[in-house]
């Protein structure tokens, strides 16, 4: 198995180091490629079994767009070929049409609008659209609101907390095996059932290390989010 961690030296914010650890724990047999900004991504040279990109800064978004633009076709091919791709935090925005006035890669018909002096922080309680019994608990901490401009592939619907923008209760993108969400946590660590669902979806079912403790933390948080006294922001 081959896993590519794209730009881990810049895109490791908002707890995403945890997701990188998790991938190593889940797939100890895998060969990991850690690709820095100036290096050509491995997925342009050979087939990857999983591609991961974590949350970064506004500056790193622009850098990534510039470095990935010449490789866009390879990325589109990987997405269409159902390569599992994980995008957390603001990293999916580089695939959008625009981030404010910055032209994105234009792979998905969304736009991100920044509000730099009004950070959006919120608890998040939602459910997976593909399996509405599967509830998700997480946080949101970001500068952008996301708007669909065409075909929409929402991942979650929101029960409590903010959706992808102040009007919509949808969140994230699920397209083939591309899983993208602005939620932080780390989301898969905070939601072992969601992780289990994704592993099954991509045909990589396996025992999740520390599953029971993760579930205890998940249940505690879910109970807290269900309590109406718990404020959303």
């Amino acid at each position: 198995m081959k896993i590519e961690l794209l730009y881990p030296e810049t895109n490791n914010h908002l707890g995403e180091k945890g997701h990188m650890d998790l991938l190593h724990l889940l797939f100890p047999e895998a060969l990991f490629f850690e690709t820095p900004l100036v290096q050509t991504p491995a997925f342009t040279k050979e087939k990857m079994d999983l591609i991961y990109l974590g949350a970064g800064t506004e500056k790193s978004q622009e850098q990534i767009i510039n470095y990935l633009r010449p490789k866009k076709d390879y990325l589109v091919e990987a997405i269409e070929n159902e390569t599992p791709i994980l995008l957390f935090g603001n990293s999916s925005e580089v695939l959008f049409n625009r981030i404010d006035d910055i032209e994105g890669l234009g792979i998905f018909d969304y736009t991100a609008k920044r509000q730099m002096l009004k950070r959006i922080n919120s608890i998040y309680h939602g459910r997976l659209i593909e399996d509405k019994d599967l509830e998700v608990v997480a946080f949101r901490s970001q500068f952008t609101q996301i708007y669909s401009e065409g075909e929409d592939y929402p991942l979650f619907e929101t029960i409590r907390g903010l959706g992808r923008n102040s009007e919509e209760n949808k969140e994230g993108i699920l397209y083939k095996n591309l899983f993208a969400t602005h939620l932080i946590g780390p989301v898969f660590i905070m939601n072992p059932l969601l992780l289990q669902w994704y592993l099954e979806r991509i045909g990589r079912q396996r025992e999740i290390p520390n599953f029971d403790t993760m579930m205890e933390a998940y249940e505690l948080r879910k109970k807290e989010y269900l309590d109406p006294k718990t404020m959303e922001v």
């Binding site: 908002l14 707890g15 995403e16 180091k17 945890g18 650890d21 922080n121 608890i123 946080f139 901490s141 932080i184 946590g185 780390p186 905070m190 948080r221 807290e224 989010y225 309590d227 006294k229 718990t230 404020m231 922001v233």
Partner: peptide
């Protein structure tokens, strides 16, 4: 308290 739920992402740093 009930004001907010502390984000824990920082633990992973």
């Amino acid at each position: 308290g009930y004001r907010n739920s502390e984000q824990m992402a920082w633990l992973y740093d």
